[in-house]
């Protein structure tokens, strides 16, 4: 689990970050190739765009116009040249730059991801820490139940139940759309269950590990206040695994909320991609996958830097 274990040779932080970035380039290159050739197998966009009684002549003209008549390898070469100029292609259906479309959907996805993260942390941190401080207590058991239920409930089922109860029956929140908090709360609650489950578990175990550590015994024997011990010596060290899992959560939230975005009609990147797949809008599919991959790389980089900041041993090793 520990992200440091992957680099088992001793190396400086700068070296490590550089190696991760080079590796990220490989990820991006691999993704670009895979996604380009896989999306071309999805289906024939020209047929989909033309009315059903279009002639063969019209069909061929359409293919020519869309630029999908050339051999795949030529199309790929053209795509790479465009990419080098920062051009991700044009959405076949909406006739606007594909990356612009993806970027315009990013705020919705980000809003959902970060409100979910903050809500989940607000619950998981106190629950996990409380459970670690009093192992075996009722509080500990409640924490276990919450996390195990959170991990087991299918997100989209929870979403449907929430809609039934709070939108259909009680009419408190909107069933789908984007805008005020009335739209945000239900999708946020639905995704939070899983996040809270995972986070609470990690917070609890990493807190437990730290509480049994020798340096806390030392801190106690120096006669420090319990609160100082917990916050300065305990929480800071427990934060390392928590930062890792929070990074993983952000990544999961940024690319895993496809189902929720579809159910709630949330205009984020997941919904955009699903729609693009159904319409065979190649440029948009490629742009959104590459964009999400870039986000993953950036989040991982930030996590690494926070890690080094929290743990000086990593900085000077």
């Amino acid at each position: 689990m520990n992200r440091r274990q992957s680099g088992h040779r001793e190396e400086t932080l700068a070296h490590y970050v550089l190696r991760r970035l080079i590796q990220s380039l490989f990820v991006l290159a691999g993704l670009t190739i895979v996604v380009f050739f896989v999306t071309r197998q999805i289906g024939d966009v020209a047929r989909l765009m033309l009315p059903i009684d279009a002639t063969e002549q019209q069909y061929l003209e359409m293919r020519q116009m869309l630029g999908i008549n050339d051999p795949l390898i030529m199309q790929f070469g053209r795509y790479l040249l465009d990419l080098a100029r920062g051009d991700f292609g044009i959405s076949l259906w909406q006739n606007v730059p594909a990356m612009g479309l993806v970027l315009s959907r990013f705020p919705a996805t980000a809003l959902l991801a970060f409100s979910t993260l903050i809500f989940s942390l607000a619950i998981a941190l106190p629950v996990g820490i409380g459970a670690a401080l009093r192992p075996g207590s009722i509080f500990d058991r409640i924490a276990t139940v919450i996390s195990i239920f959170g991990l087991s409930v299918p997100t989209f089922w929870l979403a449907l139940l929430l809609i039934t109860v709070f939108s259909v029956q009680l009419g408190w929140f909107k069933t789908s759309g984007y805008g005020s908090a009335q739209y945000l709360i239900l999708p946020m609650l639905a995704i939070s269950a899983q996040s809270i489950g995972r986070l609470a578990q990690v917070v609890k175990t990493s807190m437990l590990d730290v509480l049994n550590a020798q340096y806390l015994v030392t801190a106690r024997s120096k006669g420090l206040f319990e609160s100082v011990i917990l916050i300065r010596h305990g929480l800071r060290n427990a934060l390392l695994p928590i930062v890792t899992i929070v990074g993983d959560e952000i990544i999961g939230l940024l690319n895993g909320s496809v189902v929720i975005e579809v159910i709630f009609g949330w205009p984020g990147i997941g919904k955009l991609t699903i729609d693009a797949i159904e319409r065979r809008d190649f440029a948009v599919i490629q742009a959104s996958v590459i964009f999400v991959a870039l986000l993953v790389i950036v989040v991982n980089l930030i996590v690494d830097l926070i890690y080094a900041w929290l743990d000086p041993r990593i900085r000077y090793s």
């Binding site: 992957s6 590796q23 990220s24 490989f26 990820v27 691999g30 993704l31 895979v34 996604v35 896989v38 999306t39 197998q41 999805i42 940024l254 690319n255 895993g256 496809v258 997941g270 991609t273 699903i274 797949i277 599919i285 959104s288 996958v289 999400v292 991959a293 993953v296 790389i297 991982n300």
Partner: peptide
């Protein structure tokens, strides 16, 4: 092998799974 693991961890799994299944 570990680089392979790292690289695949960097993929947006859900989106990629959707695209591949749709294509195949």
């Amino acid at each position: 092998i570990m680089r392979l693991v790292d690289i695949q961890m960097g993929f947006p799994q859900m989106l990629l799974a959707l695209i591949i299944i749709y294509a195949a």
